[in-house]
Structures are given as C-alpha cells and as structure tokens.
C-alpha cells in the first residue's frame, strides 16, 4: 500500500524492444514536493522510463497510480510533464516566444515567469533564437519551459547535462527553490555527484531494473549487508547495482 505521503506510485513498468528488455517491472513512489533522483548509468533505462511515464512512448506494462487507482490518460497528462534531454524545440524561435508559448498553449504558470527567468539567468538570452544557444544555455531554456508547465510533477531528463559547475549549482538551487514551493521534481541523472547535491530521495536504476529506493540513509542501510554502509552515494550505487 502506498504511504499517505505518496502522491504517485509507479508500478511494474516494463518496456521491451524486440528481444531487448529496456525496463523490467520498475516500481517506485513519487512524494509531493520532493526532488527525486532517478540514478543510473547510460543505458540503464532512465529516458525510456520517463518517455513511458510522459506518454510519448508506449509501455508494455505498468501503471501510474494515485492511491490504488491507475491514472487515466487525461489525469496523467494533467499530473506529469516530461522534459526530454537533447531536444531543440522550435529552433527558429527566440527564448521569449518559447516561454510565451508554454504559458499560452500549455496553460503554463505565468505568475512565476519572471522568477524562472531570473533564477535560470535567461534575461540576456530572451531574444536569441533557440538554435543559436550553446548546449548549457539551451538546457537552461528547456528547464524554464519545464518549470513553467502547469503539471505538479516535472520529470526532467538529465537537467545538468551540458552545464558547467557554476551553472549546475545555480540550477540545482533553482530546482530546490521551486520544489520548496510545492513543485515535485523527478530528475534523471547519470552523474551521481550531481544527484547527491540536489535530490531528497533516490531510485537506483541499472539494466532496466530498480535496485533500490530511498533517502541516502535508507539506501546506506540497504547497502550495509553488502559491505557498503557508507554515506557516499557512489559507493552505495555500486553496492546495490
């Protein structure tokens, strides 16, 4: 049974590409207002899981539950937004237009537009077409789009990819600030050090399977019998996967 703090529960998600199983019975919970890190190496199934949850890739099995009830397609669309990595949406449009479109088309949160722009340092980039932005600038613009979306849960794929150390810290602070204001974040991260810096809880994913879920302390306790009772997330990850 999901705990009373859980807002959503991902249960037994499975995805196969022919003979290859990309996801195998992946289950975990997403609690309201938390920053949940989906940790795993490249190819562990993070993006596939996000795409299935976001409804842009069909899953072979599994459900997204609120309480004990599976969400309908409409409820899922209203609850969860998936922000892909490595995309260049509306490339010829300036960042300002992309943010306006997010608010206008998706019914985004116009009230936090200024704060999002300021926290992500987008003010100088507002009139630049998206295709002209550097990788890090584009990532910040994408995060702004994600943060403006109206859904309570934001699933961002590799939110720190392409950012330098300073930018990573600033973005992590921004994400934490919006989470503190009630926004739930699920972040797929392959750099474990980045994940440890920003996330409240973690789901460890390896080979398409969820190998552990919990806070650093909970995962440390879980890894203890395997000889890795450490507070270092990297050691815990290696012990559990």
């Amino acid at each position: 049974m999901p705990s009373r703090f859980d807002v959503l529960r991902v249960t037994t998600f499975t995805k196969r590409y022919g003979n290859l199983t990309a996801l195998s019975d992946v289950s975990f919970s997403i609690r309201q207002g938390e920053v949940l890190g989906l940790i795993g190496p490249n190819g562990s199934g993070k993006t596939t899981l996000f795409e299935c949850l976001g409804g842009v890739l069909p899953a072979d099995g599994g459900a997204l539950l609120r309480g004990d009830r599976p969400l309908t397609s409409g409820e899922r669309v209203a609850s969860v937004f998936y922000l892909p990595d490595s995309i260049v949406p509306w490339p010829t449009e300036p960042v300002r237009w992309a943010l306006d479109f997010t608010i206008g088309f998706f019914g985004g949160r116009s009230e936090i537009r200024g704060e999002v722009v300021q926290r992500l340092g987008l003010e100088p980039l507002l009139d630049s077409p998206i295709w002209t932005l550097s990788k890090g600038q584009r990532k910040r613009a994408l995060l702004a789009i994600g943060l403006l979306m109206p859904q309570p849960v934001l699933m961002a794929d590799e939110p720190f990819e392409g950012l330098d150390l300073r930018q990573t810290r600033e973005v992590a602070l921004a994400l934490r600030a919006f989470a503190a204001a009630g926004r739930t974040m699920v972040l797929s991260i392959h750099q474990i050090s980045d994940a440890a810096r920003v996330c409240d809880r973690f789901v460890l994913l390896s080979g398409g399977r969820a190998c552990g879920e919990g806070t650093l302390e909970e995962l440390s306790a879980l890894a203890g019998p395997r000889g890795a009772a450490s507070s270092n997330l990297e050691d815990i990850f290696l012990a559990l996967t």
Binding site: E51, G54, V56, V77, A78, Y82, P89, F106
Partner: peptide, 15 residues
C-alpha cells in the same frame, strides 16, 4: 520539423 526538433514530445503532452 516537430519530430526532428523534439518539440512534438513536448506538444504531445497537451491534451
């Protein structure tokens, strides 16, 4: 164009 740029993945999440 939307598929190539990835915008379709965003827009498909509108009902």
């Amino acid at each position: 164009g939307d598929r190539q740029s990835g915008a379709l993945k965003l827009e498909l999440q509108h009902p």
